[in-house]
Design a protein around this nucleic acid. Structure first.
Length: 1065
RNA sequence: GGGCGAUUAGCUCAGUGGUAGAGCACUUCGUUGACAUCGAAGGGGUCACAAGUUCGAACCUUGUAUCGCCCA
């Protein structure tokens, strides 16, 4: 059948993809040989809200290349696709959707209704990205498409078949029972927009213009001290009496929650006042709170005044200091980042806090003394109980309550601005002299000195939520944590001992560095969309189970409500019973909505009820959900059916290769390692291939605001999926930066066309595909055919070597160079004289070899360019997708195993190299002396060895055609004024005295001689160095010798030609 | 400040000890029967700098400079 003029990617792609899918080509185990080893890739699950961007396209192309390659090799392959429920991102998208449609807000419709909406949305548009992957030719087993929320309560019937939810819950319970998960009041990153905690990794620190204010904290009771400053030599530079300590801060509004002022223990300037009390210079004058001056290693003597205010509830460094020093941590803000409005009036709260601040006893004892907590509290609970009490104290002055923490888009001054203004007004700012130049009416400039508050304008590192883009507030809240330091060991060992390989190797270093310094992982999120934490709270009872206590609630962690009740009943004893109240869960949420974010300790019904004779204890479930990465951390086992003992789990786990972006090494890769090892005690994969962000041609990040975003589907539309895929492979150098240049894609689109044209030549011109053919190379006698068969074998080795070492670029470049430069530019051209000749046997042989070489090229190119290759496979022989038979399609063709050692014929290779050298040398010489391209010229041979003569005899027609030689005449000497053509073992000349420019030809030869001289110099230098022969490997020395001989021969010929030319001018 | 990396042709990048490569761009020529989404021929690099190891360094070591990315 005659092939069309060009490959129509747009129509072919969907047709081919449908044929593959219908024939079941992608399903797990398709095309596997009996007893095959398995090869499994887990897709990094894209967000279910996502649309395909160029990074996905790149990432999934690499996965598809490996899967197609392994599938053709007969491995039992599984490429597992699916999506991540992406808690924050999805909740955000659906909320935006609701707002757009004028529906009720999330808060108004409530949890259950909202979750229904999310599932609706997921059902309607959740599959977008998976369908987009198909446009790339992704051959994942779509019948197994997984979802990290499948099987969760509330999932619609058609979503409930998976059991990912069960896996997540089971892991949580197991880890809880092993003591790897705990709940505690810790300082976490709080996102005031989404009103949830987020993990360290979800925070982006961005340098932002900020201010550093300097304030005076007066010593209590008007005390004074002598403040002395010295320079490096110990000379006193300043000595004065002060009644204050100077503090620098970028966050004045947090002064309200200060628990102490800290100085370095070795700081002599403040040694005399350590232990004294200072007054926080904010809030109503009559209720000023006193806090102690303490010592801690944290303050930097050389930074600011050397003294630091300690606000444990709103700063990570201060938190550590406060923990070390038992300093109370007063939370000042609510879930929206506004100043708290709950609790007792300021006067009362400040008085209590002041008393606490003055106490020299440990915090718990102090609180017992004030009757705030019970001295009977169990020792293990004391810290929690004390912290919970402290958290009820609202130290925000009445007039600031409900205001935002800083101005951030508000028109009115907010807490920060008001606090600063009040301190300045009271004269407690540190003052400096500022000199400004003013012009009077006559234009005369005068310098004016003003005493002004000392405020430095300086960039500060400000934390932002990676999703919400709002300023993150460190907030002291109750959260769930994974005790990462307990599970990190095996994850580190697995990479250290080589069980898991991370590529490029630098990724391993980064991995070690992070895991060796890992922090507890905050896994609870105050969201609705996600896996709800399987812990139920109940009231604590006394040891004799007779009465309720005010201690922190008891946790019952279980996979189901029934289990939780069972656990609770065991705890409460036979005379009581537990029941579940969803009402109380809502109470807890409502409490949080009002700004109470610390816990559920005093949720109304959280106590026992006497019903008849039996005590009843109300349980309610923690309303929080798990961090999305907690569930995606279980992606490998979760998608394979764990915790059931599934066949897939046995076959495909541990999986083989993970291909993902460097940016989620910590988020995902490290966590999968830790969790799989913690849960099933096996590594999740053998090899991790990390790649960078795909950037634009100039190396800039693609972003909507820059307007340089390239939509991969636009590329597919314009250039075809194969061109995009080939570009991806060619860009994928290990550790390389990924700059996507449209020019390059265009170039690979041209390559696709080239492949098509070469096939079309085989089909339409030489009719190569009509004969039967198989995987074995045809019997060939012609050196040309024997040579190309060997070249194909070399290519097979190169492609396999590239893919085996994840050097996709090497594989791609080998294919490109072979097909364009060797197959098309040489072999295809060289077949032409045969088909224009009369030798039928030669024609038959060449048809067969041509067809075989095309077949093999299609096979070897298929993993990278599945569409054009499958289409050619189909069109050139009526095989393939048109049959509907998977076993006949290229996608399931047998990957070759022949080697260069099997198929390379050294004689044929030498012959073809000689022929090519002669042609190239003639062409080069002709072009340089401006012989018209079309002109047929005579050639003279002055010297030729036996091998050369036989090469010539066998290839005369070919050489004459491509070098445009009309005749070859032997001569003793080259005619005067001819152009020299050296070749290995031969010397030719073109007698063109009448048309050439002698000076030009001399210049050409001189240039060649110059190059040769340089090369010869290097070679001789090496060979004359006795140490070289002694130390270098024998083959390197031999190669250098051979090289030298060849160059010397060439030089001699050119010198001779040059001398001859010199005779005539 | 800590960690990781980069610096090679005009541009984008390969190149893991044997003397420099690709694509694009550029110059000249060419509508020769697969292909102008093409063909032929060419120009172009002190491999950031410095010192060291080595018979031999773009490659290994150390330092310097500049630029990225990640974490504080």
């Amino acid at each position: 059948m005659a092939m069309d003029k060009t490959f129509d990617a747009a129509t072919a792609e969907s047709r081919l993809f449908t044929a593959w899918e219908q024939a079941g080509c992608f399903t797990a185990g398709a095309n596997a040989k009996p007893e095959a080893s398995s090869y499994c890739i887990m897709i990094p699950p894209p967000n279910v809200t996502g649309v395909l961007h160029i990074g996905h396209a790149f990432n999934n192309t690499l996965q598809d290349i490996l899967i197609r390659w392994k599938r053709m090799q007969g491995f039992d392959t599984l490429w597992q696709p699916g999506c991540d429920h992406a808690g924050i991102a999805t909740q955000m998208v659906v909320e935006r959707e609701l707002a757009k449609n004028g529906e009720q807000t999330r808060a108004k419709m409530g949890r259950e209704k909202f979750l229904e909406k999310v599932w609706d949305w997921k059902g309607q548009s959740g599959g977008t990205i998976i369908n987009q992957l198909k446009r790339l030719g992704a051959s994942a087993d779509f019948s197994r498409t997984a979802f990290t929320m499948s099987g969760a309560p509330g999932a619609p019937a058609d979503e409930a078949d998976g059991n990912f939810h069960d896996a997540v819950i089971k892991v949580f319970v197991e880890m809880y029972n092993k003591g790897l998960i705990y709940r505690g009041k810790r300082l976490v990153n709080w996102d005031p927009h989404f009103e949830t905690a987020i993990s360290d990794l979800e925070v982006e620190n961005i340098e932002t213009p900020g201010h550093m204010w300097h304030f005076k904290y007066p010593l209590a009771g008007g005390a004074t001290y002598t403040y002395v400053e010295k320079d490096e030599d110990g000379t006193i530079t300043l000595e004065e009496t002060r009644d204050y300590i100077s503090i620098a801060t970028t966050r004045p509004e947090t002064m309200l929650g200060d628990g102490a002022v800290a100085v370095h223990p070795s700081d002599e300037r403040y040694a005399s006042i350590v232990g004294q009390l200072v007054e926080i210079p904010v809030g109503p004058k009559e209720h000023r709170r006193l806090i102690p001056i303490i010592t801690d290693e944290y303050p930097d003597k050389d930074f600011g005044s050397g003294a630091v205010k300690i606000t444990g509830a709103h700063d990570f460094n201060d938190y550590q200091v406060a923990k070390r020093g038992g300093i109370p941590m007063y939370r000042l803000m609510d879930t929206k980042g506004a100043m708290r409005a709950d609790g007792a009036p300021y006067a009362e709260a400040a008085a209590l806090a002041s008393k606490i601040g003055k106490s020299t006893k440990p915090l718990f004892e102090t609180l017992v003394e004030f009757g705030a907590v019970s001295e009977n509290t169990e020792v293990s609970q004391r810290e929690t109980v004390a912290a919970n009490f402290i958290d009820t104290i609202n130290l925000v002055p009445d007039e600031l309550r409900g205001k935002n923490r800083f101005i951030d888009g508000h028109s009115e001054p907010q807490a920060r601005e008001i606090v600063v203004a009040e301190i300045n007004a009271e004269g407690l700012a540190v003052m400096v002299t500022e000199v400004t130049t003013v012009k009077d009416d006559d234009g005369n400039e005068t310098e004016v000195s003003n005493i002004v508050p000392y405020v430095e304008n300086k960039p500060i590192m400000q934390p932002f939520g990676d999703r919400s883009k709002v300023v993150i507030e460190p907030m002291l809240t109750d959260q769930w944590f994974v005790e990462t330091d307990k599970i990190v060991g095996p994850a580190l060992d697995a990479v250290r001992n080589g069980d898991v390989k991370i590529l490029p190797e630098s990724g391993e270093k980064t991995y070690y560095h992070w895991l060796e310094n890992i922090e507890p992982w905050c896994i609870s999120r105050q969201l609705w969309w996600g896996h709800q934490i399987p812990v139920w709270f109940g009231p604590a009872v006394s040891a004799d189970k007779q009465h309720y206590t005010s201690e922190a609630p008891v946790q019952f962690c279980a996979t189901t409500e029934e289990e939780a009740i069972k656990l609770a009943n065991e705890y409460y004893g036979p005379e009581a019973e537990a029941y579940i109240s969803s009402y109380d869960q809502y109470q807890a949420e409502a409490k949080r909505a009002e700004g109470g974010i610390s816990g559920f300790d005093d949720v109304p019904n959280m106590e026992m009820h006497e019903v008849g004779k039996k005590k009843r204890y109300c349980l309610f479930r923690d309303p929080d959900v798990l961090d999305t990465w907690f569930s995606s951390g279980l992606w490998p086992i979760g998608t394979l059916g764990w915790p059931n003992e599934s066949e897939e789990m046995a076959k495909y786990f541990p999986t083989s290769t993970l291909i993902t972006g460097q940016d989620i090494l910590f988020f995902w890769v490290a966590r999968m390692m830790m969790m799989q090892l913690a849960v099933v005690d096996q590594v999740p994969f053998d090899t991790v291939y990390l790649h960078g962000l795909v950037r634009d041609a100039k190396g800039k990040k693609m972003s909507k605001s820059t307007g340089n975003v390239i939509d991969p589907l636009d590329i597919v539309d314009e250039y075809g999926a194969d061109a995009l895929r080939f570009s991806s492979a060619a860009m994928a150098a290990l550790g390389g930066v990924l700059k996507l240049d449209m020019k390059r894609i265009e170039g690979y689109r041209n390559f696709v066309t080239k492949i098509w044209q070469a096939s079309s030549y085989g089909d339409n011109v030489i009719d190569a595909f009509s004969a039967e053919r198989g995987a074995e190379p045809p019997k060939a006698t012609l050196p040309l055919n024997r040579w190309i068969i060997g070249e194909v074998a070399k290519l097979r080795e190169d492609v396999d070597a590239g893919l085996e070492s994840f050097r996709f670029n090497d594989a791609a470049n080998a294919l490109y160079a072979f097909f364009w430069n060797t197959f098309c530019a040489r072999y295809l051209e060289f077949t032409k004289p045969i088909f224009h000749g009369e030798d039928q046997a030669a024609k038959d042989e060449t048809q067969a070899v041509y067809a075989w070489a095309i077949d093999q090229s299609m096979i070897l190119m298929h993993p990278i360019m599945p569409f054009v290759t499958e289409e050619i496979w189909n069109v050139t022989d009526g095989r393939g997708v048109d049959t509907g038979d998977a076993s006949k399609m290229l996608i399931h063709a047998e990957w070759p195993t022949y080697t260069a050692a099997d198929l390379v014929d050294a004689d044929a290779e030498a012959e073809m190299n000689w022929v090519i050298a002669v042609i190239d040398n003639v062409r080069s010489a002709r072009a340089q002396v401006n012989v018209p391209a079309g002109a047929q010229v005579p050639m003279v041979v002055t010297q030729i060895d036996a091998a050369g003569q036989s090469y010539w005899d066998r290839n005369e027609a070919l050489i004459k055609r491509f070098a445009r030689i009309e005749s070859l005449t032997p001569a003793d000497e080259a005619p005067k004024g001819s152009i020299a053509i050296p070749a290995p073992g031969a010397a030719f000349a073109l007698p063109l005295a009448e048309i050439i420019d002698v000076a030009k030809e001399k210049a050409r030869l001189e240039k060649t001689l110059g190059k040769l001289a340089k090369e010869l110099g290097g070679l001789r230098g090496r060979l004359n160095n006795p140490k070289f022969a002694d130390s270098a490997p024998a083959e390197v020395v031999a190669e250098a010798r051979a090289n030298l001989a060849a160059r010397e021969e060439e030089e001699a010929k050119i010198k001779e030609a040059f001398d001859r030319l010199a005779e005539i001018g």
